[in-house]
Design a binder for these strands. Structure first.
Lengths: 240, 240
DNA sequence: CTAGAACTGCTTAGGTCTTAAACGGTTTCG
DNA sequence: CGAAACCGTTTAAGACCTAAGCAGTTCTAG
């Protein structure tokens, strides 16, 4: 079946944390979950998440598709492992001078780099309470470490964290969409539509004419990040 | 084939904008693209985007799966039409007193309601330059209308728009994930993990202990929206 | 008024994907 | 030395999307 199935979160977590007692009986395993995930990450980086199908991974290792199910409960669990593998470990944030704001900015930039290297993580973690592996928790921990310096209430720190990751993720999606050629085609088509129906969208027409949609020059992360950090800082100072 | 296929953006746009010359020759069509999309939206609302498959839609209307392809070039185009259909028209923002900030806040809240009604729009519009239909453009136009009052540079208005939609979308994703039961299970599992490996994540452990992850009481949209608008407002005043 | 063009919906078929189940071979433990 | 555990394979089932061709139906051009 392509859908549903009964998922076992315990098994998935054991896989993520590498907490399965390895067997002693039968033949030596020729593969490993970590190895499969690592190769799958490479493929997803190069060709997208869809390309890293079970069948493809089987071919990649010279085994049958079904052989993979000895190492991984199913596709969903493999993707979860891929996500944690691809994320890697963030640099610690404690060493950065200047308090929470430069620390959080550095964290965001690092996170952005990571997402740009592995844009498929976005779709893999969308619309689903993701089981978090060691690396994903490390990223969370690092951001919270920076935010602890704000003196905000705990719930507010959590909200601020979501705000920053959210921005990073949105930007990743925005920028990944554009691979120049496709972006130009899109702009052309949308421009043609606007030419026909522009009168229904006065503000949009004006903005386009003013060049609001022209490919920007600066660092795309900056604008939003600065606005968000300004907003958080205002709250921090208000609390003090 | 389940993948690839040659897409025809022109045809897709014609579908979105209802600009196909309707036929005069053969038998009366028993369905319509708009009708199919409308029903598909209902199904996606209730059971998720996956549930609104071609096969399912065929059954839904008492015809074969392939009959649908007389009305829609393919699944992708149907989803695009579903998105625009589900979005509907936003309330105009011009009538709201108090300038750009209340206008943008109202827009965001309205947008959030829309996304909460149709959370599948998130996954449908992820990782792909979406062809925009009339309704989607109307939402964009409304937001830009509010932002025009800021006096920011055009590119900055665009960036600010992305910041606000991004927040709304992130929050939708965040909140849709939690359907209480699943959320509790997730919290339990993550708690158990943290109990075992907590020493590796000091900041996270502290935050959890302080209740940062306890289900919050207030309006979840508020925190981020206020921070973002504060940040934008600071820039507006700096420009003045 | 009558072909034929155009359009309808259906059938057939081929390709993708995940995964359940059973089977023979291999390794180690009791 | 048997039996249990584990390996990779084969087989097969059920989901999905869609290309291609076929038999009717309806309008229009000649």
């Amino acid at each position: 079946m392509a859908t549903a199935k009964k998922r076992d979160p315990e098994a998935a977590l054991a896989l993520l944390w590498g907490e399965q007692g390895q067997p002693t009986r039968g033949p030596k395993p020729s593969l490993s979950a970590a190895g499969i995930a690592a190769r799958a990450v490479e493929i997803a980086d190069a060709e997208g998440l869809e390309a890293a199908s079970m069948q493809r991974m089987g071919k990649e290792f010279g085994v049958t598709t079904m052989a993979l199910y000895r190492y991984v409960p199913g596709r969903a669990e493999l993707v979860e492992l891929m996500v944690d593998t691809a994320m890697g470990t963030p640099q610690p944030v404690a060493g950065i001078a200047g308090g929470w704001r430069p620390q959080l900015a550095h964290w965001a930039r690092q996170c952005w780099d990571m997402y740009r290297r592995h844009p498929w993580i976005l779709t893999a973690t969308a619309m689903r309470r993701q089981l978090m592996g060691p690396n994903q928790l490390a990223w969370l921990d690092a951001a919270l470490g920076a935010l602890a310096g704000t003196g905000l209430r705990p719930a507010e720190q959590h909200d601020a964290f979501l705000l920053v990751v959210g921005h990073v993720r949105n930007l990743t999606q925005q920028l990944t969409e554009e691979d120049a050629e496709a972006g130009a085609e899109w702009a052309r088509l949308t421009g043609a539509v606007l030419e026909r129906h522009g009168d229904r969208y006065p503000s949009l027409t004006a903005a386009v004419a003013a060049g609001a949609f022209a490919p920007g020059g600066g660092d795309p992360l900056d604008f939003g990040l600065e606005r968000i950090l300004d907003g958080v800082q205002a709250l921090v100072e208000e609390r003090r």
